[in-house]
């Protein structure tokens, strides 16, 4: 079953076209990695699907529901607000710099949306939150404030926060880029565990080894287009495009 269908997606900021004619389909349980140089539009792609940016053209379908469609006149239009809200609940987003709510403790960070948005009762939401924290190895941090946690712990809390809404799909935008190198491992481990559980995920990352390990499919973006794509075997092998090889070479060198 297709969880995410993107067709001919385009996005411009003013006169600069940041995404051009992007198409791909993510099936249930798949893990996709998006790689590419800085400024190639990776974040913008995730943000368009997450409704944090308005797409300029194309079509997006999430869990079979139309989010962005072309109407009879060929104009690109969004689904009505209630549908958009439903769709958004299907996708959890994990940010590069966590964006936890600093004034709420860890437990509250995780329960805020389930209580306010899903109208769950607080004790039930807290029970779920504690389970998630246990999974993240953070049971003892429930009462801590984000500023008291390491970057890696904060990122695990933010993953728990996204999971608390029980999304069908999880997006990560460079989840380890703001972390000290020795802390990236703990996040990558959590993502691998989620992959093993069958979570559908789209991950923007600069961790090439990780992308190769965990992804079923890799998109290589450059200049707002999908420059190359395929299985890790293909992109990291001899059949990759020259450009892909060049890009990956840079990572081997450092």
């Amino acid at each position: 079953m297709a969880m995410l269908e993107v067709k001919n997606l385009s996005k411009s900021f003013g006169s600069t076209e940041v995404l051009k004619d992007i198409s791909f389909t993510v099936e249930k349980g798949e893990v996709w990695a998006i790689i590419g140089p800085s400024g190639s539009g990776k974040s913008t792609l995730l943000r368009c699907i997450n409704q944090l940016e308005k797409a300029s053209g194309g079509e997006i379908k999430v869990c079979g529901k139309d989010m962005l469609i072309k109407n009879e006149k060929g104009k690109t239009v969004y689904a009505p607000p209630s549908v958009l809200r439903d769709i958004r609940l299907n996708i959890g987003l994990v940010f590069q710099n966590f964006n936890l709510f600093p004034h709420m403790n860890v437990l509250r960070n995780i329960t805020e949306a389930p209580v306010r948005v899903l109208k769950k009762n607080r004790s039930e939401a807290e029970k779920t939150a504690m389970e998630l924290l246990g999974k993240m190895g953070l049971s003892d941090k429930a009462k801590a404030y984000p500023c008291e946690l390491s970057g890696g712990q904060q990122q695990r809390v933010s993953i728990a926060r996204a999971l608390a809404l029980n999304p069908e799909m999880l997006f990560f935008d460079e989840p380890t880029s703001a972390l000290d190198p020795e802390l990236t491992g703990e996040i990558l481990k959590v993502i691998k565990e989620l992959a093993a559980e069958g979570m559908t995920m789209v991950i923007v990352t600069h961790e090439m080894g990780f992308a190769r390990d965990v992804a079923d499919h890799i998109l290589f973006m450059e200049g707002g287009v999908i420059a190359d794509e395929g299985t890790p075997e293909k992109l990291f092998g001899e059949n990759a495009s020259e450009r892909t090889k060049q890009f990956l070479q840079r990572f081997k060198n450092n």
Binding site: N50, L52, L89, F95, N99, E112, A113, R116, V117, L165
Partner: peptide, 30 residues
Amino acid sequence: IPKGQYEAAASLSMNKLQTFFHVILPQVVK
């Protein structure tokens, strides 16, 4: 208040009022 706070709230499907009163305002007060 950093833009990321609004975006985090939006990605959690919180509406404008919930975002303002529960995420933004308490931080503004401080």
